[in-house]
Nucleic acid binder design. Structure first.
Lengths: 290, 290
DNA sequence: AGGGCCATGAAACATTTGTTGCACGATTTA
DNA sequence: TAAATCGTGCAACAAATGTTTCATGGCCCT
């Protein structure tokens, strides 16, 4: 079984990389970034594109334990070979118990989540996005594990609508924000069983203020979905394991942001580009290499 | 680029196959059945395995309109090249318009994400979880949109290991935490293209300190994956839309937490129950209705 | 049957491949 | 400061690559 401690050539490369000479690091990075070309094109060809000496590739291979470039490339080729075994056959054996029950747990979890995603209603999301598009201001709420989803939504929406989006409670006690809800604004509340009192309070405040309420929840019976103009459902409990799954909620949040952006048209695009340009100017990102 | 928009070289081959000489048909079938080997191994090598003459490969290539085997192989190689990630601006364009384009966008996004999830390596996650289980302390890092994933991971892990988990930079400047990394501790860094400098700094600090480095990234070539003991890959660019998808990263984070919890056994379970009991006592949750 | 045609395998060809020895320069050590 | 070590590019090397040529053998047509 291929389960042994032997790892892929790319991991070997990655682990050895920091302890390598400068030039070898360069070509090592190049190989890692272009491993498909590494398996198909010639060493000299790669060297020309990487702007390095052909010999460096041979030396790199030897430095990480191969007899030469040929052997390293062969390893990369095998690692890339399309798997002939179907994932189902793997699933069939070693169920539940045994040395690899952890792996089975992960596999189950991922498959369950993948199966859950398409059940999300695309129409409902598109409708909610239109509501967001029309909103003068957008408030976002999520407590406990849902806070992460709330923050991602906040982040993405602020990329192209910086002044009009904020998380409830971000700049002080929640209660202050609750009084600020106005008609024409949108309030998003994210949550699932067991529901936190705080999120329900936010939903009620939004409802009373006449703001557009968008609930992202695991059930239409969720208390924060009461009186909501839009309810977007995901399956929190669909996955095996001990914590409810947030993948569905996150997928909804991302779709919501994407559609809202698309509704924003040229203006939104301009805003996003400005933001990206500012980040680039502040050298937030690692610069691209040739 | 030899010819204009032609179909894939493999279909060209299949079409021309019946009108070819006997021997060339055999070779052609072999190429069609083993096109991965055709792109990676040498002509003579293939000939030996197919039980044919090396010259037959050159003749086959010429028979279907290529200048030689090299050119045919180049075409096969390009046809097999993994779909490259297109930059944001390119992806933003060429969207179809129409009344329901928004709905289509959501559907595309969800389907793509569902398809991407099962590609995550369950083994790698299980291994990383074991490393987390053994770690004396766990540091978590994620900037910009990845911060949301980092915070979810932090939240879930703290449910059963409250004193040993923290987000880098949560209690002051990042730099203070970077000096606190120790061998025996684990550092998780989450990120994708374009990579923030800050996340790379954290990864390097972890490496230098001898801590166990776990990278959750979109590529093995990611700078914060260099020297990492575990790399968990997700597809950020797999989904249509304008922002990279975090669903994969989130699924990894949740699986990681679930497996780590399961490794924690009875002790972890006790911890979780205590936490839940405390939250219930503080009446955080909405009480069940009859 | 004979003559032309084409398919086929083996061997020789010019290129290109991965590798290695060597010299130069930078950095470290005594 | 001198010696030693290491990293690096260049150039020459043998091996392997794809291609071509040539001789052979089978096939069809007149």
């Amino acid at each position: 079984m291929a389960l042994s401690a032997k790892s892929s050539p790319l991991s070997e490369l990655r682990i050895a990389l920091p302890s390598l000479p400068l030039r070898l690091q360069e070509v090592g990075r190049f190989v890692a970034a272009n491993d498909y070309d590494a398996t198909t094109r010639s060493m000299r060809d790669l060297a020309a594109e990487a702007g390095a000496d052909p010999a460096a590739f041979t030396r790199l291979a030897k430095a990480i334990g191969y007899s030469g470039w040929d052997e390293l490339r062969a390893a990369l080729t095998e690692a890339r070979r399309p798997s002939q075994i179907s994932p189902f056959s793997v699933r069939a054996k070693n169920r539940r118990h045994g040395p690899n029950s952890d792996v089975a747990l992960v596999t189950d979890k991922l498959e369950a989540e993948a199966a859950g995603l398409p059940r999300i209603s695309a129409h409902a999301i598109a409708d909610a996005a239109r509501a967001l598009h029309d909103a003068k201001r957008i408030w976002i709420t999520g407590y406990r594990s849902c806070r992460s989803v709330a923050e991602l939504l906040n982040y993405e929406l602020r990329l192209f609508r910086p002044e009009q989006v904020q998380i409830v409670g971000a700049s002080g006690p929640d209660d202050l924000d609750l009084g600020a809800f106005r008609p024409g604004e949108a309030v998003i509340v994210i949550g699932f069983t067991p529901y936190t009192n705080a999120s329900v309070r936010v939903a009620q405040a939004a409802y009373r203020a006449g703001a557009t309420l968008i609930a992202i929840a695991d059930s239409v019976a969720a208390p924060m979905a009461e009186g909501a103009d839009h309810v977007l459902l995901f399956e929190a409990a669909s996955s095996p394991g001990f914590f409810p799954s947030l993948t569905g909620a996150l997928a909804i949040a991302q779709s919501l942001a994407a559609v809202t952006f698309s509704l924003g048209g040229a203006a939104a695009k301009k805003r996003l580009e400005d933001t990206e340009a500012r980040l680039a100017a502040a050298s937030t990102y690692v610069s691209e290499k040739g």
